[in-house]
Amino acid sequence: MSRFIDIAALADIPPQGARVVRTPQGCVAVFRTADDRVFALDDRCPHKGGPLSEGIVHGASVTCPLHNWVFDMATGQAQGADSGAVATHAVRVEGGRILLDASAIRRVA
């Protein structure tokens, strides 16, 4: 069951940029592409834990700032020779607001 939470305005994220949402499981990086698509991934590269939110966004991909792993933001899969994946979160934009699916984020019992 999905549970969308309003986290920010689209305008809070620069095009080809990202912002971070803190969650009990660690940070989620919310990306905005040049053509205003929005993606949400765990802000932690499976390689050495680099903050993906600080990577360069190009097309629908992001490059980790620490060692240049490239991830497809739609699937979370590492591209090219690297193998690995980062968890993705459903996200959508409604009326200029970004809604993040928080169902995968553990509710405190």
Partner: peptide, 30 residues
Amino acid sequence: TVGGCASCRPALNYYLIADWPLDYRDDRQS
């Protein structure tokens, strides 16, 4: 490619800064 990559974008941003200091505006996202 659409939007280049993490290799060419910073290079292009630099070249444009160096060649057109008055016309070009630094692109932080590159």
